[in-house]
Simulated scan of single mutants.
Amino acid sequence: MPADEQQVPSVWARPRPQRRDQPALSRRQIVSAALHLLDTEGLAALSMRKLGACLNAGATSMYTHVANKDELLELVVDEVYGEVDVPATGDPAGWRAAVTGCAQSMRATLLRHPWIVSVLGEAGLAYLGPNVSRLTEAMLAVFEEGGFSLQAADQAMNTVVAYVVGVSTSEAATLTTLARSGQGEQEWTERLLPAAEEAARSYPRLRRLYAGQRGRQVRDSRDDGFRIGLECVLEGVAARLAPSG
């Protein structure tokens, strides 16, 4: 099998090209422009051609750093994860508080860039990126300091991250819909509730849930729901994976 076919298909798994002359564009410039395009116009707007136009550069300049759009997304995903607050170590008794702060920061970061939830499962080997690696190492360290074995720390971290990404995916979908509608979250929800209650006429529990949402602040409800769910996750992680002693 040719050597190039054996390479791992990831921007993080191959050496960066060495050039004696200074390339017209830096990797940072490309990633910054791609992130801006994604934040302002969404995932559907991203293409190598459009990015080149934004940078006033030809494809050759970009292909020095990224082989294709998939590699570009790996870079941008890692850039976004660089915004997440890395949990501080050094307090074995405070592992829950440290993980909670990190989880809240991760949720906030994902919701600042709602397009990202659509690509997390397709972002190749994004976990090899430096920002994701730094965050992962810190989370593992926090759990280990709290008495978890390394294997248990890995399981606990993955469980917390899965919860955060799962909740944020649903929230990001709602926020994306809101952005298209031009309405505020509170206004949009209040207009939706009558239709939701009507659709739930044959489902008494759903109808009561929808009725109970009238007059509530939607953002506060989302924040409370995330906090309570995270507390449940951490309680389960502690009961199942933390040392009994």
Rank of each mutant, 00 (worst) to 15 (best):
M1C: 11
P2G: 05
P2W: 01
D4G: 05
V8Y: 08
V8C: 12
P9N: 03
A13P: 06
R14K: 14
R19D: 14
R19M: 11
D21P: 05
L25F: 00
R27P: 03
R28F: 09
Q29G: 03
I30M: 01
I30Q: 04
I30E: 02
S32G: 10
S32C: 08
L35I: 02
H36C: 10
L38K: 01
D39Y: 00
D39M: 01
G42Q: 00
G42W: 03
A45D: 09
M48Q: 09
G52E: 04
G52I: 02
C54G: 07
L55V: 05
L55W: 07
N56V: 06
A57R: 05
A57T: 00
A59P: 06
A59T: 11
S61E: 08
A67M: 05
D70C: 08
D70F: 08
L75F: 01
V76I: 08
V77T: 03
V80M: 05
V80T: 03
G82H: 00
E83F: 09
P87M: 02
A88F: 07
T89R: 12
G90Y: 07
D91G: 09
A93T: 15
W95Q: 07
R96P: 08
A97G: 11
G101T: 02
G101P: 06
G101K: 07
A103N: 06
Q104S: 10
M106W: 04
M106T: 09
R112M: 10
R112Q: 14
R112D: 13
V117Q: 07
V117D: 01
S118D: 15
V119N: 01
E122Q: 13
E122C: 09
G124M: 01
A126Q: 06
Y127Q: 15
G129I: 00
V132F: 10
S133C: 12
R134V: 09
L135R: 01
E137V: 14
A141P: 05
G147I: 02
S149T: 15
A152N: 13
M157Q: 13
N158R: 15
V161C: 08
A162Y: 07
V164D: 02
V164E: 00
V164Y: 01
V164H: 02
V165K: 04
V165L: 08
S170F: 14
E171A: 14
A172E: 03
A179K: 10
A179Q: 13
S181L: 08
G184E: 08
E185H: 08
Q186A: 06
E187K: 08
W188N: 09
E190W: 02
E190Y: 01
E190N: 13
E190K: 05
A196H: 09
R201K: 14
P204F: 05
P204M: 07
R205D: 12
R207L: 15
L209G: 12
Y210K: 10
A211H: 12
R219G: 14
R219S: 15
S221W: 09
R222S: 08
F226R: 06
G229P: 01
L230I: 03
L230W: 01
V233Q: 02
V233W: 06
E235V: 13
V237N: 04
A238N: 10
R240I: 11
R240L: 13
L241G: 00
